[in-house]
């Protein structure tokens, strides 16, 4: 059965409804804390490898591409928290429901599909950010404290950090919609994670890239997903340059939201629900 739907409709639903969705998403994680902790352990181990590797590289007060060990430590830990946001749940549940046909239920609800998923991502994100910051606290016990940012930098950092979740959501949501075409989503997801991790500067700061790649990654939405807030936190990005980077984040946040909506209009027409 192909659903002839007006997928682009916007219904006026009270904000309360979306807040409920966010809360339900948050509770679905708090209900299984062990499962969440173990899935987080995976990214924690790879962050651990990065920290040890960079400590070896930058030992004896050496600096490289403008990073000494304390600043690299701060950079890696901020990107770790950024990466834990919108990690897997949003697209995992989307693809499950699309594949099994449960998505039909989501379409019947008088809620905007994209806004509803965003509300859930915020709910997950609250928990993910809390756990991520907890992990960072443990890491500072092992690797020592971080250089404190100036008050100005910190304010700008908070502003920049706000954009991380919607930016990541834009990419995760869009790649989740690919499930309408491919049945196997695991591969798409793994490829997406690898590319975003690399181009957002989470694996290696963009400053280490050759010039052309740095320009591409800086102009693309990826830098705003990890690199920008991390650089502002460490004080490497200041003043007008920092404001410009936050501006790029803001522009991409809106652009990705609109692109995702356009993509949804095409994707939802692909839907075939079994047994209809």
């Amino acid at each position: 059965m192909t659903l002839p739907l007006d997928a682009g409709r916007t219904v006026n639903v009270p904000f309360r409804a979306y807040r409920r969705l966010a809360l339900a998403a948050l509770r679905s994680l708090t209900a299984y804390p062990m499962s969440f902790a173990f899935s987080m352990l995976a990214s924690a181990f790879s962050a651990l490898a990065m920290l040890y590797l960079w400590r070896a590289v930058l030992s004896n007060g050496r600096a490289s591409s403008g990073f000494d060990w304390p600043h690299m430590k701060a950079y890696l830990l901020v990107t770790f928290v950024a990466n834990s946001l919108v990690s897997a749940y949003t697209d995992y549940q989307m693809c499950l429901r699309i594949r099994q046909g449960d998505i039909a239920m989501d379409l019947i609800r008088p809620l905007d599909y994209q806004r509803a998923r965003f509300a859930e991502a915020c709910g997950f994100g609250l928990y993910e950010a809390g756990a991520g910051i907890g992990a960072v606290a443990v890491a500072t016990l092992i690797f020592g404290g971080l250089p404190a940012p100036s008050l100005r930098s910190f304010g700008l950092f908070l502003l920049s950090a706000v954009f991380v979740l919607p930016l990541r959501f834009g990419i995760v949501y869009t790649s989740g919609l690919v499930t309408f075409w491919t049945q196997n989503y695991v591969g798409v997801q793994a490829a997406r994670i690898a590319l975003v991790t690399f181009l957002s500067g989470s694996l290696v700061p963009l400053a280490f890239f050759p010039g052309w790649l740095r320009v591409i990654a800086g102009a693309a939405p990826f830098a705003g997903m990890a690199s920008t807030p991390a650089l502002i936190f460490g004080g490497q990005l200041q003043g007008a340059a920092a404001l410009r980077a936050v501006g790029v984040q803001a522009v991409w946040t809106v652009a990705l939201w609109l692109l995702a909506r356009a993509f949804w209009l095409r994707a939802s027409r692909q839907l075939t629900v079994n047994g209809g």
Partner: peptide
């Protein structure tokens, strides 16, 4: 599932 095979290998 040939497409899946390629997706997984490329991934």
């Amino acid at each position: 599932y040939e497409a899946d095979f390629w997706i997984m290998s490329v991934t």
